[in-house]
Amino acid sequence: MRYPAFLQRIADRADVQPVRILTFSINGQAVSAREDETILSVARENGISIPTLCHLDGLSERGACRLCIVEIKGSPKLSPSCVTLPRQDMEVITNSDRVLDYRRKILELLFTERNHICSVCVSNGHCDLQSLTTELGMTHVHYDYLHTRHAVDASHERFSVDHNRCVLCQRCIRVCEEIEGAHTWDVMGRGYLSKVITDLNQPWGESTSCTGCGKCVQVCPTGALSEKGKSVAEMTKKRQFLPYLKLMRGDESR
């Protein structure tokens, strides 16, 4: 769209933000946003909580865990708020019964997939998956447990990976690729048989690309990646550094 000439001269100025600002509503609350912000970040800015698992501030979005789904008025489809951009006058509902019900069931599915027994886990009490159960009011699992069995890799001198606790959120992969720049981690296999691997599925300790920075361990939401020497409930994660690292690398988009 071209503006009238007097306005276009201003719009063309290089020092003016080229991004539009728009207003929409979340749960009836009016909010304003840049057009390139996600619904999730606008919601959180305004104190509206939306549960997430694969999302982590500072990392690229995956839209994979499906816990942040929201309803948008006029659309029969549910949208993952972490990758959906707002439109002017859009009406977003984050807490309808339908959405809450789906989120709880998705979380249940995650608990059936692999072995998530909190009482014997290094991350007990400091686990994103565990916190989600309280946040979403999940009290029990009404599907059958699958509990696929995986070997533990403790070949690295400082860290270990227990695939039985992994939720395949791919945070480790992203932090390693996008922030550390090593791309040690990746996924192997398909569907419920997929698994995160180091290098070309070598033991972690033999990885030639791993720098041993430990960022993957800090961003892991569960006890899948942990520091050695930590016993039950002792593994607390330090991930406050992330947004700053991203900033230092020169990526200004939030």
Binding site: R66, G191, Y192
Partner: peptide, 21 residues
């Protein structure tokens, strides 16, 4: 579908296994 699911999103990855079982 269960064995062809890429495994990225949770409902497809785990849900199809549950349905199959």
């Amino acid at each position: 579908c269960m064995s062809e699911s890429c495994g990225k999103c949770v409902p497809c990855r785990v849900g199809t296994v549950q349905i199959y079982n």
